[in-house]
Design a protein around this nucleic acid. Structure first.
Lengths: 306, 306
DNA sequence: GATTAACATGAAATGAATTCATGAACGGGT
DNA sequence: ACCCGTTCATGAATTCATTTCATGTTAATC
């Protein structure tokens, strides 16, 4: 009758609470739903009590479940802290993490992620390489950045790619637009529209790169830096935009504008963190990547981890 | 590069510190020395640093090793506490643990063990059934005791046995006795001696039961309640005693008396905790047994866990 | 009533931890 | 100095636990 509780179980319980369901928790942990189900069953058998109510949404934990979550809350941060301390003892970690971004919306999740990172690695110089760069990988080679957030995986580059997440990009149209009631829009629907976008080159926009350019369609363009401004233009009938679903969810719920799927299968943007092989070794890099994935998964609605 | 640190590893590290060597730590954990060696190697590879110095005695930990020990010190008690809380939530634990002992020396380790137990299970009524009983198992059947400490394993009894530990029983003789220089003594050597013992029936003394009675030897007896008094009698040449090595270690180091092995293979006393099947289920019972084994192993010199 | 989403479950497969069987290194004793 | 006993390391085999796969069940939704 030995305790077979392990840190793994505590992590599962926390993920379950944070993610709200076994399926989502499993994504967070890079495991299958089945694995978690088995794991929890073992624990419940061991303690002779259920740990959470399966039916209810939101998920509710039983008293023993809550007790284990409390335990996880004391234990897991302590473990994290200890492992970071050891990293410091072994290789005096005093590096830098200068991040280059090529997409505007990235800031929405990058800032919170950086805020979590900073106190965890106080001695790492954390920075954003200002401006939007068409070739962020170049910045890494020139040592002007340590990490770049990019939307394409290119195995041929001599850098490491760390998958982050995937999100759906939807067409944003005025509520009274004829497109608003369509089940999806295709490339041709953009032909006679003004595409409202961020002020970046074509090849940095997923909608151009993945949909319009391949179809040979080059709509009029109008650009602005701010997402709200783009939505204002759309709402007032000046054109159509293509934005991440998570970035506009709030406005959709308030029916400020309408969203339509792009193509029958939908259009998806992917994000990777890329850095030199050397940077990949740094303990804080792995921490940054996994922490970012986690915090994005928990805060951005409708994303999928890669 | 996920953290593969688990509670198991923290337990190993603590056992290593407490036991002072891999071999002893392995006994404490019911594992082989090899298992621990592999476990630690994995950790050291993971962190890229040794965790302790192998050569030095007493064992020394490196800074990262110490850091993990600190972590273990915060984490493991918290885990213990959480699991006890859950036991209470699941089955309101409000039982009793009345312990019957048949051997005098047992008190030496039983008291400290009880002192550790009490704060861990405040709601369990902890007691010693006073007096020495020839048939402690009977007390269990009569519900006059919940747990008995016995020295023989008898599978035919309708009670559960929980092995505790094994210790060597040595013959204690005066320093100037001719027996003192022998490499061991046998049954015949007791024939013309006075056996100094606790005031209990023959069948409760290992030396009688296992050595003298089988050989048909029945020496004169003289008895006293106190171990020191027995040693005093031996030292002044009044006879010979047979006592657990761990109980007399102090006196041997001060050369107050001499110890001699009994028979070529040595004489070993074994101890088991026995209780009803029902009592075995109680969560605090398992805790008492494992805690007792551990505390005895760490404090009594020269014992082996069963 | 079909359809989707979430969880459970048994069997198979994977993978990790442990043991077994050694070998090397160290530290007394004689 | 040389054995002898002890401790730890190591590679291969084994055992054991965890995870996945494939599928079943249930509940909620349109």
């Amino acid at each position: 009758m030995q305790s077979l509780l392990e840190l793994r179980h505590l992590k599962t319980l926390q993920a379950l609470r944070d993610a709200g369901s076994l399926v989502r928790a499993a994504q967070l942990l890079n495991l299958t739903q089945s694995a978690l189900s088995h794991q929890l069953k073992v624990l419940e058998d061991q303690y002779g009590t259920p740990l959470f109510e399966r039916k209810s949404l939101p998920l509710r934990f039983t008293a023993p479940g809550e007790r284990l979550l409390t335990l996880a809350g004391q234990v897991l941060p302590a473990v994290d802290a200890a492992e970071r301390d050891i990293s410091r003892q072994v290789q005096g970690v005093t590096g830098s993490l200068r991040i280059a971004v090529e997409c505007h919306t990235c800031f929405d999740w990058l800032m919170p992620a950086m805020d979590i990172f900073r106190p965890r690695w106080p001695e790492v110089e954390l920075d954003i390489v200002s401006g939007f760069h068409a070739d962020p990988v170049g910045l890494i080679h020139q040592s002007r950045a340590d990490l770049a957030i990019v939307s394409e995986y290119d195995a041929s580059e001599s850098v490491d790619f760390h998958p982050l997440f995937q999100y759906e990009i939807v067409a944003i149209v005025a509520n009274d637009s004829p497109l608003a009631s369509r089940s999806f829009v295709a490339a041709q629907d953009f032909a006679d529209q003004t595409l409202i976008s961020y002020p970046v080159p074509d090849e940095m926009l997923d909608i151009m790169r993945q949909v319009l350019t391949p179809a040979g369609i080059k709509p009029a363009r109008r650009s602005t830096e701010l997402t709200v401004a783009m939505l204002q233009l759309v709402a007032s009938g000046r054109g159509i935009a293509a934005l991440p679903l998570w970035a506009v969810q709030n406005y959709l719920e308030r029916k400020y504008v309408s969203a339509v799927k792009i193509n029958a299968q939908g259009l998806f943007g992917k994000l990777y963190a890329t850095c030199s092989a050397e940077t990949s070794q740094r303990p804080y890099l792995a921490d940054f990547v996994s922490m970012t994935r986690e915090s994005c998964f928990l805060t951005l609605p409708g994303i999928t981890l890669l």
